[in-house]
């Protein structure tokens, strides 16, 4: 077993030189690079998380918005249906009223026409009767008197009817 102190000093000094050289040439720059990368990755992860949180929030907002608009649309539809129902009822009612009115008017017209026709027929009948009577009695009567007479008869006849 040989221990040479000169060799020992050689080993110690050279090792310390090596350590210092390695520290400044390798460890320190490598550590800086690694730390920088770590910081960058950390920052990027934070940014990504922030973005994700933003996206989540936006998604929630959009979902809420969508639900709200869907609700609104539903409301609008319901309201429109109600309105349509009301309108339909109104229209139907109006149409029915119109129809009733037309029917009434038609009835009235018919009645009027009937009256008119009946009046004409009565006049015609009176004239015919007057002609027939004047022919029968050969006597010309005052036109106005005749008419009054005939009207009286016809009225009587109408009452009898």
């Amino acid at each position: 077993m040989e221990i040479d102190f000169a060799q020992m000093i050689f080993a110690i000094t050279n090792f310390i030189i090596l350590m210092i050289a390695m520290y400044f040439l390798m460890y320190k720059p490598l550590k800086q690079t690694m730390d920088k990368r770590q910081d960058k990755i950390k920052g990027e992860i934070e940014t990504a998380e922030q973005l994700k949180a933003d996206a989540d929030q936006m998604k929630a907002e959009i979902t809420a918005e969508l639900a709200k608009s869907r609700e609104t649309a539903q409301e609008i539809i319901v309201r429109a249906e109600k309105t349509a129902e009301v309108q339909k009822d109104e229209i139907v009612l109006a149409a029915r009223a119109e129809a009733q009115k037309m029917i009434d008017k038609a009835h009235a017209e018919i009645r009027e026409e009937k009256e008119k026709v009946l009046g004409e027929i009565r006049d015609e009948a009176a004239t015919l009767a007057m002609l027939a009577a004047s022919k029968l009695i050969e006597r010309s009567l005052n036109d106005t008197d005749h008419k009054q007479l005939v009207d009286k008869y016809i009225e009587e006849a109408g009452e009898v009817q």
Partner: peptide, 26 residues
């Protein structure tokens, strides 16, 4: 105690190897 202590100034082969390893590492 069986140990031979000495103080010798000189360059040995392993010192060259030592420097070679040092140089390689650096």
């Amino acid at each position: 105690y069986g140990f031979n202590f000495s103080f010798t100034m000189g360059l040995t082969k392993w010192m060259v190897v030592f420097w070679g390893v040092m140089l390689f590492m650096i």
